[in-house]
C-alpha cells in the first residue's frame, strides 16, 4: 500500500479549502480574534474615556464612527465589545464542551437506567425556553456569588448562565455518537483484549467523535454570543461601563430616533460575526461528514 495515510482532519481541511465562503469566514473570525486580543493597542481610545465636549457626534476624523451620549468613542467601544462578546462566547462554549462531553459520554457509555435518568433531566431542562432558563440561572448566580461590584457580578452571572444552558445540546450529540461508536467492532475488539472502560472511552471512543463535536461547538459559540447580546440588550446581561455588542445595542436603542447609527453599528458587527460563524459551521459540517450534505 503506497497511498499515504490521511487523517480525518487532513481530509476535512482539504474539503473545507474548496468552500470559499467557509474559508473566508474562518479568516474573518481569526482577524476578529486578533482585534479582540489586541483591543488595547488597536482602539484609539479606551472603552470608558469620556469626552464631554464631543457628545453624540457624527463620524469624523477624530472619531471614525462618532461618539455616544457620554462622549465615548463608538469605534473603541465596538472593538472592546468584540473582546467581551468573543471571550464570553468562546469561554462559555469551552465550559459547556467540558460539561457536555463528560455528561453525554457517561450517559451513552453506561447506558441503561442511568442513561434514562440522565437524559430525562436533560429533557426537563430542554422544556424551558432558552431565554427563560438563562434568566433564571442568572438570577440564581447573581444572588449567590461573592463579587462586590455589580458589573462583575453581572458578568459572572452571564458566563454561568450561558455555560449551563450550552451543555445540553453537546450532551445530546455526544451521547448519540458514543452510543453509535460503542457498538463498532473495534471497540468490541478492544474489550476482548481486556481494555479498561474509562481509558478506552478517552483513547478510542472520544477521538472518533471529535468531528460532530467540533461542528456543534462552531454553532455553539455564535449562539452564545447572540444570547449574551440579547440578555444585555434587554438589560438583564452585562452592565455598562463594560462594553459588549449587546450593551452597546441597549444604549443605542434609547437614541434610535435621532442617532440610529449607535444601534446599527453594534448590530452590524454582531451580524457579520454570526454570518461568519454560520458559514464556517456549515462548511465544517460538510467537510467533516461529507455524507450529510
Amino acid at each position: 500500500m503506497s497511498t499515504p495515510s490521511k487523517s480525518l482532519w487532513f481530509d476535512a481541511y482539504k474539503r473545507l479549502k474548496k468552500n470559499r465562503a467557509a474559508l473566508y469566514s474562518g479568516v474573518f473570525i481569526l482577524l476578529l480574534c486578533g482585534v479582540a486580543i489586541f483591543a488595547r493597542v488597536l482602539s484609539p481610545y479606551s472603552f470608558d474615556d469620556q469626552n464631554m465636549d464631543q457628545i453624540l457626534t457624527t463620524p469624523s476624523l477624530a472619531h471614525w464612527l462618532g461618539t455616544d451620549d457620554l462622549g465615548r468613542d463608538l469605534l473603541s467601544r465596538l472593538i472592546y465589545g468584540a473582546q467581551m462578546s468573543m471571550s464570553v462566547g468562546i469561554f462559555t462554549a469551552i465550559f459547556s464542551l467540558a460539561m457536555g462531553v463528560v455528561y453525554g459520554a457517561l450517559a451513552g457509555w453506561v447506558g441503561g437506567r442511568i442513561d434514562a435518568v440522565m437524559m430525562r433531566f436533560v429533557d426537563i431542562l430542554d422544556s424551558i425556553p432558552t431565554l427563560v432558563l438563562l434568566i433564571l440561572v442568572k438570577i440564581l448566580f447573581d444572588s449567590v456569588n461573592v463579587f462586590m461590584h455589580p458589573e462583575l457580578r453581572a458578568l459572572v452571572g452571564v458566563l454561568m448562565a450561558l455555560s449551563i444552558f450550552g451543555w445540553i445540546m453537546l450532551a445530546r450529540v455526544v451521547r448519540g455518537q458514543v452510543m453509535q461508536v460503542k457498538q463498532l467492532l473495534y471497540v468490541e475488539a478492544a474489550h476482548a483484549l481486556g481494555a479498561k472502560n474509562l481509558p478506552m472511552l478517552f483513547k478510542h471512543v472520544l477521538p472518533n467523535i471529535m468531528g460532530p463535536i467540533v461542528v456543534v461547538l462552531t454553532f455553539q459559540i455564535p449562539s452564545n454570543i447572540m444570547f449574551e447580546s440579547f440578555l444585555s440588550f434587554i438589560g438583564l446581561g452585562l452592565q455598562p461601563p463594560y462594553s459588549s455588542w449587546g450593551v452597546l445595542a441597549n444604549a443605542g436603542w434609547k437614541t434610535i430616533k435621532t442617532y440610529p447609527h449607535l444601534i446599527i453599528a453594534p448590530g452590524l458587527a454582531l451580524f457579520l460575526t454570526m454570518l461568519a460563524f454560520n458559514l464556517l459551521g456549515d462548511g465544517l459540517r460538510d467537510a467533516v461528514d461529507p455524507k450529510s450534505k
Binding site: 455564535p222 447572540m226 447580546s229 440579547f230 440588550f233 445595542a249 443605542g252 436603542w253 434610535i256 430616533k257 440610529p260 444601534i263 446599527i264 448590530g267 452590524l268 454582531l270 451580524f271 454570526m274 454570518l275 460563524f277 454560520n278 458559514l279 456549515d282
Partner: peptide
C-alpha cells in the same frame, strides 16, 4: 436565508423602524 439566520432581531427592528416609522 443564511443572512436572515444571522441577523440579530434588534438590528432588523432598528433598520425597519428607522425606515418605516421614522
Amino acid at each position: 436565508a443564511i443572512s436572515s439566520v444571522s441577523l440579530p432581531s434588534f438590528l432588523v427592528a432598528a433598520i425597519m423602524i428607522t425606515i418605516f416609522c421614522f
